[in-house]
Structures are given as C-alpha cells and as structure tokens.
Amino acid sequence: MRALEYETDERMLIEAAQRDPLRFAELYENNFERVYAFIAYRIRDRQEAEDLTAEVFHRALAGIQRFEWRGLPFSAWLLGIAAKMLADHWEKLGKVQEIPTDELELAGIDAAVEQRAMLFQLVDGLPEDQRKVIVRRFVDQRSIREIAQELGRSEGAVKQLQFRALETLRKQMRSKYV
C-alpha cells in the first residue's frame, strides 16, 4: 500500500514537472543521492562523479517531456541515463565496461548503491563537530593535524570525533538494513 502511494506521488510529481519544469526540483531532491551513489560506485573520482551526476540531471530535465510512465520508479529512468553516460565516459577513455540497463530496470536499484546513498544522507544528520571532521577528512582529505588546527582542538579529540562519527554511521546503517 505504501509502495502504491509512493508510486502515485512520484507519478504526480513527474506530471507536475512535465507541466512546469520548476517542479523538477522535487524529483531532484528525491533522487540525488541515489544517482550520485550509482555513479560514484563506478567512478572513484569525486570530481568526475559530480560532473556526470550534474549532466544526468540536466539531461533528465531536458528530456522530462519525453518521459512516459511505465510503472517503474523515476530513479530507474535516471539511472538508465547515468548508465549510458558512464558507457560514453568509458568509451572516451578507451575502456569497455557494460552497464546492463535492462537488468537495472528489472532488478530495481542496486542494494549497494542504495546503501551508499543512505550513508551520504546520514552524514548530514551527524552532530556538527562530527560532520565537520568527516567532511574535512574524507571530502577534503585533510590530515588529523590540519583538522585539529582548523577546529582548534587536539589531535586526540579529532580522532575521537572521527571514531564516534563512523561508529554512529555504522549503527544507523545496521539499524536500517539489518
């Protein structure tokens, strides 16, 4: 019943975005982490993952009028665009790596991707000091010493925050998936 409600809501959002492209923002909010995680799972470079994610959404916005509702989640359509873009990307680089789009559509969203998307969302919910340490450490790739200097805390305290943040994320992930 809940899935049906979600499906109906999403369909309404898509139809609203087809009438008024400004409503596309809601579809973007609902699917950003999923698309980014899907791309980042396959491309380990953050800058490239961000560029490709941006392009997926720009294409989706441009092609929203052509979208036809067939009962599949909107994310499947977005991930299909992402898969094609990844294929183009690897082709340019001379690599061959097929993304089975049909399989994606049938199997739904990959569990690992979904898990990663959830993790990225959970980081936003961390306490401010822990979130700051995680962002500095894993996004900006700063050393513990640099973070300690920036935050005005001891290195031991920063390591402690890092440990607590990862522990919190692990527990939250487990509670959601186990």
């Binding site: 980042a40 953050r46 941006a54 916005l61 898990q115 962002v135 440990f163 994320l169």
Partner: peptide, 24 residues
C-alpha cells in the same frame, strides 16, 4: 568502521547538491 570510511571516500562535497539544484 573502515568499511564505512571506504564508502565515504566518494561522498559528494556538501555544497554540490545545493549548487546543482540552483543550476537546475
């Protein structure tokens, strides 16, 4: 914990999401 940390390596920049939304 290291498994979680490995996943975080490709985490997007905090402002990327809002910037992309603005552009869209």
């Amino acid at each position: 914990l290291l498994g979680v940390a490995a996943e975080l390596r490709t985490m997007p920049r905090p402002d990327f999401r809002s910037q992309l939304k603005y552009e869209l």
